[in-house]
Structures are given as structure tokens and as C-alpha cells.
Design a protein around this nucleic acid. Structure first.
Length: 295
RNA sequence: CAUGAGCAU
């Protein structure tokens, strides 16, 4: 934004791309209020926002869950004769799904198909995630099947959402099955796929399987990131297996990660629950000394 | 110049 000022001082005129970049930056930083004002300002330069700028704005509002603003933006687009495209609608689907308005989200997706939009995994994945969010495993599975029927191949994002969703409703068996399916499809599972499995097995009380999962990913050349370790340490802490938990704490540090507030939160709760307040206090102090804020 | 995924209380 300093550059924008500088540009104007040098008499350079911002173009649609300048605004596009700025609007996008603001939207990513949860500053849609300012983004909207910026869009309003474009007219002063004789510029009118196109699909890209509007879509960035829609994206920003969906991130913040402001569906009313989304619809208002859509109306504004229509009023100024700008045609929304697939990306715009994808964002609306994601917004509706995030808000749990699944009937609307499904209707929109069906409508997109009818209108001949080429849907991809992104469109379906948002919808599937929404169904899991409202606890509707059946619909999630239904749309997972539907995307395949329509010739759209699930990608790593889709599988991570499916596996995460299934692990949250006790579908560990199906989750493991999908992991196999990924290999069969030639997809390489990443941290986003393994982490929910680890967390899920822990929640299930099956820490052994969780540890095995972490070891397996290492064997498959996927390096467990902090999320994976946190999931495991959290599971172990809840079961009071603090020796194991600290073992993985050491491993994570050996592999170049630094514990964060989640890691410490799990350890502190684990030790407190086990009645070892000294250790809990020790980790709390360590956390503070590393400049991590308690929450 | 613009879209999707995982961690504690």
C-alpha cells in the first residue's frame, strides 16, 4: 500500500491489475471492509472491476462467513453486467458449505452442472467438507460417489477432507480404505491425509495404530510435520502416556520442528491430569521463555 | 490480478 501511494505521487495510474492485487491481499488478510472500499474507489480512475476483482472479493467474504455480503457482491456484478465464472461460484459454494447451508450449496452445484460449467475436484471438495461439518456422513459419501460418476477424479485435497471427515465420525475403517484407494489411484498422500488419521486413531484410543501411522508416513518419505506430532502428542497426553508423549516431543525437535502452543497445551493438560503439576509448570515456563503466548 | 484440506482447552 506504500507502493500505491508512491505510484500516485509519481503520477502513475493504477490499473485493474494493481487493484486486483491489492484487493486480493486485503481479502486474504481478513480485511474485506477495506477491500470493498478499494473496489469502490476504482471508478475514480475510470476503472471498473472485472470478474477477477469481484471473485477475490467474494473469496474474502466467504472466508469471513459474511454470506450477505457475498450475495450483495453477486447482485452488484449482475447490475454492472459482469458474468460470474466457475471460480466465483466455487467460492459461493465454499461459503455456503462453511455456513452449513447445504441445501443451497447442493442446489448451486447442480445448477452449475446444468449450466455446463466444468466442475473439478475443488467444487466437489467444498461441498463434501460442508456435509461433514454438519455431521452428514451419508451425503458426504454420496457426493464423493457423485463426483466420480461425473468423471471428476478426487485429488489429494478431496481425500484429506474425506479422511478427516470419516475420522471424526468413527469411520476409521473407511478412512483406511480410502488411503489404500489413493495409492491405487497413484496419488501420494501428504501430511494433510495422515494427520487426521493419526488424530482419529488417538481419539479412538488406538494410540498404537496412531504411532504406526506416523512411522509409516516416514517410511513412505512423507515427513510428519508439527500438526502430525501435535495430534499424536495430544492423543498420548489424553491417555496419560506422558513418557511416550515426551519421546515424540524429542523426535519432533530432532527433526527440526519447534513445539508451538498446541504442543505445549497438550503436554500441560496431560501432566495436569496425571497430577504432575511440577512437569506441567515446567512446560508452561518453557513455553513462556520461548515467547509462545498461552491462550 | 482471483477459489478447496489437518492439531490442544
Amino acid at each position: 500500500f506504500g507502493f500505491k501511494k508512491e505510484m500516485m505521487e509519481k503520477g502513475l495510474v493504477p490499473d485493474v491489475f494493481t487493484y486486483g492485487t491489492l484487493v486480493n491481499g486485503l481479502c486474504k488478510g481478513r480485511r474485506t471492509k477495506e477491500a470493498k472500499e478499494l473496489v469502490g474507489e476504482m471508478a475514480q480512475w475510470g476503472l471498473s472491476p472485472g470478474v477477477v476483482v469481484y471473485t477475490a472479493l467474494v473469496d474474502g467474504f466467504t472466508r469471513e462467513g459474511k454470506m450477505e455480503e457475498v450475495f450483495e457482491t453477486m447482485r452488484e456484478m449482475e447490475a454492472s453486467g459482469v458474468q460470474p465464472n466457475k471460480l466465483t461460484y466455487d467460492n459461493v459454494i465454499r461459503g455456503l458449505s462453511k455456513m452449513g447451508r447445504m441445501e443451497k450449496a447442493c442446489d448451486l452445484l447442480k445448477w452449475m452442472i446444468k449450466m455446463g460449467h466444468m466442475l473439478d475436484a475443488t467444487s466437489y471438495t467444498s461441498l463434501i467438507e460442508g456435509h461433514f461439518k454438519v455431521g452428514n456422513k451419508e451425503q458426504a459419501l454420496h457426493w464423493f460417489g457423485e463426483m466420480k460418476n461425473n468423471g471428476v477424479s478426487p485429488d489429494v485435497y478431496t481425500y484429506s477432507v474425506m479422511i478427516n471427515g470419516l475420522c471424526h465420525c468413527g469411520g476409521f475403517k473407511q478412512a483406511e480404505h480410502l488411503l489404500e484407494e489413493m495409492f491405487a489411484e497413484g496419488l501420494k498422500p501428504n501430511e494433510f491425509v495422515y494427520s487426521p488419521l493419526i488424530a482419529g486413531h488417538c481419539r479412538d484410543g488406538n494410540v498404537l495404530l496412531a504411532c504406526e501411522t506416523l512411522d509409516n508416513m516416514t517410511k513412505r518419505d512423507v515427513f510428519p510435520d508439527l500438526h502430525c506430532y501435535n495430534s499424536l502428542i495430544n492423543g498420548l497426553s489424553k491417555l496419560g502416556k506422558m513418557e511416550e508423549a515426551t519421546k515424540y516431543l524429542a523426535q519432533l525437535q530432532n527433526r527440526g520442528h519447534s513445539p508451538n502452543e498446541f504442543t505445549y497445551g497438550s503436554l500441560i493438560h496431560g501432566y495436569s491430569k496425571a497430577g504432575d503439576m511440577e512437569k506441567a509448570e515446567l512446560f508452561f515456563q518453557e513455553m513462556l521463555s520461548r515467547g509462545i503466548k498461552p491462550n
